[in-house]
Simulated scan of single mutants.
Amino acid sequence: MTEPTTYPGPRIVVAQDLPVPADPVFEAWTDEAVLATWWWAGLPDTQHQVCAEVGGDFAVSSQVAGLAGRGRFTRLERPSLLQMAWRWETGEGQAQDDLVTVELREHSHGTLVVLTHEIADADSDTAMRDGWLGALTALAALFPASSERGSGH
């Protein structure tokens, strides 16, 4: 993976508010078994690989869907930040890695997840924005709004 120093392409920013503290959200990104419950969980052949350490791999692929993405963690600050050099391995591929940053901003009612995808290729479009929105929606389904956080139970 080649990590550029600048990202001249478009920037995608998506967010999702979750009714839980940051730590279980961080775990959902860094534990293979938990990741498998939400990232492309509806695709029967999805493979998940996570080595949650700086320099460790993050990979998700589905041959049935023809989708594959791979990252390498460049920063892990539990429970507030994950960052990885990222590339989609489907289609024409990429010459340089993008940068994906997942910020977990804990607040009084839960955690705001802010995902920023900085694209290395200046000629890229933001078509993958819908994919990231779908991923965050699937992540949110792990943490229903009826969470007992702050309910006194």
Rank of each mutant, 00 (worst) to 15 (best):
A140N: 02
L82R: 12
T6D: 13
M1A: 08
W38M: 04
V14L: 05
E118V: 05
D17Q: 14
S146G: 15
Q16H: 03
P144S: 06
T6Q: 13
V102L: 10
T5E: 11
S62C: 08
A140F: 01
T46L: 03
L35Y: 02
L133K: 10
P144T: 01
A135E: 01
E27D: 15
R70H: 14
D98Y: 10
G69A: 14
A140V: 02
E118C: 06
D17H: 15
S61G: 12
A65K: 03
T116I: 05
R70Y: 12
L82C: 13
F143A: 02
E32G: 06
S108N: 12
G42P: 07
S124D: 13
Q83T: 07
A22G: 11
Q63V: 14
A68Y: 02
F73N: 05
H109N: 14
D123L: 09
T116S: 14
I12Y: 01
A145K: 06
V14C: 05
G131K: 01
W40L: 13
A138C: 07
E148L: 15
T137S: 09
E53Y: 05
R105S: 11
P44V: 09
V20N: 07
T2G: 03
P24V: 00
L43Y: 06
A36G: 13
A28R: 02
G9S: 01
E106T: 09
E148K: 09
A28M: 07
H48C: 11
D97A: 15
D123A: 15
R75Y: 03
A36S: 14
V114D: 01
V25D: 07
W40P: 04
A65T: 00
G55A: 11
D125R: 09
F58T: 05
S61Q: 12
L81T: 11
T2W: 06
S108R: 15
